[in-house]
Design a protein around this nucleic acid. Structure first.
Length: 813
RNA sequence: GGCGGGAUGGCGAAACUGGCAGACGCAUUGGACUUAAAAUCCAAUGGACCGCAAGGUCCGUGUGGGUUCAAUUCCCACUCCCGCUACCA
């Protein structure tokens, strides 16, 4: 039989048509198999898939197909993160309704998806802008509202004066609007809704211990830093001359409080209104404005004296109250005690303004610093000095005792502060989930009753409106009857942050068509936790923390039994194109459709797996993909030609089967552990190189095993090609539903070990020896080698190091 | 500034537990096939040096030191690159 040319287009078209309506990838309900839930992050429907998506999905798909072949009941779903600002921008630019635009994009991307034949259970597809989905966002919101986990307060928002709208934090880049890089965002105070993620801060932090084995260390570190737990004490200084007026500060170093030489308030501290004269208030406001314009980088520390003094509750000392631009209102209490001798920032500030610096901590084995003369703050723990009754105590002990003293005397207590803040979820935008509350002049804020959900997002809304929520312009949406008193009331016109959508979508996949509840808890109990989640590291904090928070709330609502959503997390590396970062503005985005067109889906997905290990950055190069294309062609032609063997087949069969089973062993082990598909593919290439070399001598029986095993082990990596050759070999049915071939350790074993012989650490020869040969035997054989003898000629053998079955090092002087 | 990751041929990379550095692929060069090209196949390919050749010697994993019979791998110091974060009291 002559070989056939590899026509990837014909092969992919053929199977694409045959597979179109097949449900190969449906997860089974009530299965007796062990389950495996593998998930890739759902994409935003921008309209096109690019190579970054392909990488994400190729990794997940390889794993899903492998797990299927290993006999697991696999849940591998896909959906669309379909709400969000780009749809509104596109609507303004193209005069096309966001819903229409979004649904058209989804249709286009789904076509690309099908083309790549990723093994999703499309019956479970979730689209977050579908009312059948977002009604449950509203339902969860109401449950949180009932429990006090959702609340409303006035807060500062990022405002772009050019867009005339509010921006989410993530849309502020280096202090400016992401669409107007020259336009600093302003802060505006607006009423907004918050979710009380801080109520779970401790759990989110502590439960990370259970994730340590399955999550990348750096993601956990980023989350720890983001949560930012800090143990210290809150202490009330009082305003001198007004003992009833406390100024509460947070500090992690109460032990240094005798060294506090001033108190510094944030410029937006509420006390400033009463404390400062009009000139001071103007200065404070200028500081706030300057900060919001340029929130990043090292800003020069500025401050001024308020004209008032505060009383240190431990020493009774009066210290000046300053206003300082580096004190953050959003952290701690918005006020600090400055201990310049023992804090870098305070040191810098006090030196600049000539404020007293008083050391009170000495190194455990040293002496107290002398002032004047200090050039930097002493930050370490040590022994407390010049601190009244606490003098002589170690810092740790003083911290404990002094906090207890504050509690006893009623001017403070130990306190824990978190960096993480409550999650502001209000967006003054159209394309999102309506927040299901009604504002009634008589009853106040009233929840929309469950049986009136979903609160539908109206179509045909003018979204170009200036500076307020577009929904405000829709009277039939805004005007509503109060559910409590029936009187005329106004519906909430803000919509929810889209991170709400993605915080629980993976639960919906388990029961996507449920119209009575977000899901059936029994189904969650079967499928959860997610066995493997795969996505970009850029979601390490926001999405992954929000998801963990939602899971904990759902657990407390009794909806799920699991404590965490994701057992194992994998963060893939970025994709860059021809050495530079891909971006629309550079015009170098590698589109998935173009890839499929030019090389075929198999080549594209296999190349992204081959070019780098999945956790590392990947550089897309055209020529590299051509190499994979050539390789797949070699495989195809090798399988489709069948040349009758000539000569003695015994040795060739042994060689071929040995390499085959060694390759299989390597791939199996990699799938189970580290997923270095790049070396797996390299191993298959090596196998092919050996096979084509020995081809003419391999017997038909061995060749059949080789061919079939090749088809099976390529099935997770190149599904079209493996299916095609599986059929060429006379087999029926989907190749990826075949059991994964077990490697035979007997066949994989080498006949004898090759021992590298070194003299003084340099390779001088190699010898063959039976496995497990004794060191003396190896030495005897090595010394029979001429080159080895030459290398030690005239020297004395001092020592011989033997590594069994691997290496022998003769040390000679 | 803090935290994390990284640096290996012309390029992407491999070497998993301290044991043959550069597997595999790309690119390049030469050859075969072809009227020709494409495709395909074969061969060479870290550097310097010795040799007519077969072959051989030395150097080489960002830099400098250390531990070891043996270091890309472990330890110390440093340089550069990339991410995230940013006055968190």
């Amino acid at each position: 039989m002559p070989e056939k040319p590899y026509d990837h287009r014909a092969i992919e078209l053929k199977w694409h048509a045959l597979w179109r309506d097949a449900d190969f990838y449906q997860a089974e309900e009530n299965s007796s198999k062990p389950k495996f839930y593998v998930l890739e992050m759902l994409p935003y429907p921008s309209g096109t898939l690019h190579i970054g998506h392909i990488r994400n999905y190729a990794i997940g798909d390889a794993l899903a197909r492998y797990k299927w072949m290993r006999g697991f009941n696999v849940l591998h779903p896909m959906g669309w993160d379909a709400f969000g600002l780009p749809a509104e921008n596109a609507a303004i630019a193209n005069r096309r309704a966001p819903r229409e635009w979004t649904l058209a994009n989804i249709a286009a991307m789904k076509k690309t998806h099908r083309r790549f034949a990723f093994s999703y259970d499309w019956n479970r597809e979730v689209t977050t802008c579908d009312p059948a989905y977002y009604r449950w966002n509203q339902w969860f919101f109401l449950r949180m509202l009932e429990r006090g986990l959702a609340y409303r307060k006035k807060a500062l928002l990022n405002w772009c004066p050019k867009c005339n709208t509010v921006l989410a934090n993530e849309q502020v880049v280096e202090g400016s609007c992401w669409r107007h890089e020259d336009t600093p965002v302003e802060q505006r105070a607006l009423q907004q809704w918050f979710l009380k993620i801080t109520a779970y801060a401790d759990q989110l932090l502590d439960d990370m211990a259970t994730l340590e084995s399955g999550w990348p260390e750096r993601v956990l570190t980023m989350q720890r830093n983001w949560i930012g737990r800090s143990e210290g004490a809150e202490i009330d200084f009082t305003l001198a001359g007004a003992p009833a007026q406390p100024i509460r500060v947070f500090t992690t170093r109460v032990d240094t409080i005798y060294g506090a030489t001033c108190v510094i308030l944030a410029p937006e501290h509420p006390l400033n209104d009463t404390l400062l004269d009009p000139g001071g208030r103007a200065k404070a406001k200028a500081m706030v404005d300057a900060r919001s314009a340029r929130d990043l980088g090292d800003v020069e520390k500025e401050g001024f004296f308020s004209g008032h003094y505060a009383v240190n509750p431990y020493s009774g000392e009066q210290v000046p109250i300053w206003i300082g631009n580096f004190v953050l209102m959003s952290y701690g209490t918005g006020a600090i005690m400055a201990v310049p001798a023992h804090d870098e920032r305070d040191f810098e500030f006090c030196r600049k303004y000539g404020i007293l610096i008083r050391p009170v901590i000495r190194p455990a084995d040293g002496v107290l610093a002398e002032e004047p003369g200090m050039t930097e703050a002493f930050l370490d723990y040590g022994v407390v000095e010049s601190s009244g009754p606490w003098s002589g105590l170690p810092s740790e002990e003083a911290r404990r005792q002094m906090a207890a003293f504050a509690l006893e005397k009623g001017f403070g207590q130990s306190a824990i502060t978190f960096r993480i803040k409550d999650w502001g979820i209000s967006r003054q935008r159209y394309w999102g989930t309506p927040i299901p509350v009604i504002h009634c002049p008589a009853c106040g804020v009233v929840a929309v009753p469950d049986d009136q959900l979903p609160v539908l997002l109206p179509d045909h809304v003018d979204i170009a409106g200036a500076g307020r929520s577009p929904l405000e312009t829709v009277p039939e949406f805004v005007n509503a009857a109060c559910p409590k008193c029936g009187g005329a009331a106004r519906r909430e016109t803000d919509t929810m942050d889209t991170f709400i959508d993605s915080s629980w979508y993976f639960y919906r996949y388990c029961d996507p068509h449920n119209d009575r509840a977000p899901f059936d808890s029994a189904k969650i109990a079967y499928w959860f936790e997610i066995d493997q989640y795969i996505g970009g590291v850029e979601h390490a904090i926001l999405h992954l923390i929000y998801s963990r928070f939602f899971t904990k709330v759902m657990r407390d609502l009794g909806l799920v039994a699991n404590n965490e959503p994701v057992r194992r997390m994998f963060t893939q590396g970025m994709v860059i194109a021809e050495g530079t970062k891909m971006s629309k503005s550079r015009g170098n985005v590698v589109g998935a459709d173009a890839l499929a067109e030019q090389f075929g889906a198999d080549t594209a997905r296999m190349f992204v797996l081959f070019a780098a290990p999945p956790e590392k950055e990947l550089d897309w190069r055209q020529e590299g993909a051509e190499g994979i294309y050539r390789f797949l062609g070699r495989v195809y032609r090798f399988v489709t030609r069948n040349t009758p063997p000539t000569g003695n087949t015994g040795a060739a069969d042994r060689d071929a089967l040995r390499k085959l089973h060694q390759t299989l062993r390597k791939i199996t082990e990699d799938f189970e552990t580290r997923w270095h598909f790049n070396t797996c593919i390299a191993a298959i290439m090596e196998l092919m190189n050996l096979l084509t070399e020995r081809e003419a001598a391999i017997s038909p029986t061995a060749m059949l095993e080789v061919h079939e095993t090749l088809a099976l082990m390529l099935a997770p990596l190149a599904p079209y090609l493996s299916q095609e050759i599986w059929e060429e070999l006379g087999n029926q049915g989907p190749v990826f539903r075949q059991p994964w071939p077990a490697y035979n350790p007997e066949l994989a074993r080498e006949d004898e070990a090759e021992i590298v012989v070194q003299v003084n650490g340099k390779v001088r020869g190699r010898i063959a020896a039976p496995f497990g040969a004794a060191a003396q035997e190896l030495e005897r054989r090595a010394l029979a080698d001429e080159k080895v003898r030459a290398a030690i000629a005239g020297k004395t053998v001092v020592k011989v190091v033997a590594v069994p079955d691997k290496l022998l090092n003769i040390v000679a002087r």
